[in-house]
Design a protein around this nucleic acid. Structure first.
Lengths: 234, 234
DNA sequence: ACCTGAACACCGTTCAAGT
DNA sequence: ACCTGAACACCGTTCAAGT
């Protein structure tokens, strides 16, 4: 498994009170349980027992179970952000950095599937129920946007709102990550290959000839009739 | 809300036995509850009560709650597949059909967010615990792959394993769909715009000039020295 | 300030019994 | 063949009480 450096406490079995940073210890234990058996393995009773504390002690530090999970998710975004920055810089920024970042994103998800699932799909953003969670999520996304701005300045990424380009790229790697941990993309080797293929293809696209050759036609007006190419509709 | 055509039964309130297609009625009621309040709103007690049946009657037709949800997910893939085929054909196949299909995919998710969440992220494929679910999921994916094969024949999509191209495209639209229903892409109008942007950009990519022609790196390379092309590093 | 322990209102699931 | 109803082993959460 791929879990934190194993929090210090966790041994405090019998001593009425915890007398440490119980809040942090609870979040650590919750993450441990998630990594070991998924979110469903997290029970307040289990978490309390693992720390030698009553099952209601948690309510002194979190408003409820959902709040505990939000804290775990927040920590996930912190780590994801760190992984992205590391990949971007280590690979020397630019094109290589961008590709490395995409691969690192997918790797983070496949290495911590249960944690990744808590980060996404559970809390709806914008509801601002957990502002810190939203802030960390935005910070992780910003790493990607910053890299796109730099690539635009370097002339290796098309012009346009970098946040929009960022959402496009984020969606693509997030999609790979989610389908990967859903088991829909095959074994680890196939996932790794698709992640690499994806970040490369995001740059070049899948269009061909008539699409890319002329001075970047992009759209023709939706209403106007399109020229077809003989067409062999089945 | 955007729920099925409201199944016929559901009125059988008092009559000991159900005497209809209870299995189908249970799945319908589960989907109704999901659309109304998310998966967490599904309780076997609630489903049974809504159909005027005991809370354990379900066990005659499903092995457990998870099996009931798998049936709901399977139905979701059936509908998704139908929506994709419809969009592809109505838009006249080809480029326009491809774009319409991508937009339709995202629309399906945003119109049925809770149902979409049951379809993904809950069951790990390959475990073959629910073969019918896997088959319907594969069938929906196949619609996309078929369209790519046709576009390759028409010369408007690059060569290469269509299944691999399909996984790339699927990941991108799935990512948009998931982030959208997580509330991370803003309001419906922004989601719609990003969906359209995404399917277009999948074709053209986000690379620029030097990318599509020769090689052109950026900044210093971290380890291996890379050939540079004059460059205007910032 | 921080934690306990009993109590409450829920769950999914099992199983002997009914028709 | 299909369904019931009691029972069981779980949940998250509240709250008066303890130190």
């Amino acid at each position: 498994m791929d879990i934190r450096p194993a929090a210090a406490p966790r041994r405090k079995r019998r001593g009425r009170y915890h007398h440490g940073d119980l809040r942090q210890a609870l979040a650590d234990e919750a993450l441990r349980a998630i990594a070991a058996g998924g979110v469903e393995a997290v029970t307040l009773r289990g978490v309390g027992e693992a720390l030698g504390v009553s099952r209601t002690a948690l309510y002194r530090h979190f408003s409820d179970k959902e709040s505990l999970l939000a804290t775990v998710a927040t920590e996930g975004f912190r780590r994801l952000r760190a992984a992205l920055v590391e990949a971007w810089q280590t690979a020397g920024r630019g094109r290589a950095g961008f590709e490395a970042m995409g691969v690192a994103y997918v790797r983070f998800a496949t290495a911590n599937p249960a944690h990744y699932r808590v980060m996404f799909g559970r809390f709806v953003a914008g509801a601002s129920a957990f502002p810190e969670l939203e802030a960390e999520g935005a910070a992780a996304f910003q790493v990607l946007v910053d890299s796109l701005v730099e690539q635009q300045h370097d002339g290796i990424v098309i012009d346009g709102d970098p946040a929009r380009l960022g959402r496009f790229v984020w969606s693509a790697v997030h999609g790979v990550a989610m389908l990967a941990i859903d088991g829909r993309l095959g074994p680890a080797s196939a996932i790794e290959a698709l992640a690499a293929f994806t970040v490369r293809q995001l740059r070049f696209g899948i269009g061909r000839d008539a699409d890319t050759a002329p001075a970047r036609p992009h759209r023709r007006s939706a209403a106007a009739p399109r020229r077809r190419r003989a067409g062999k509709a089945s």
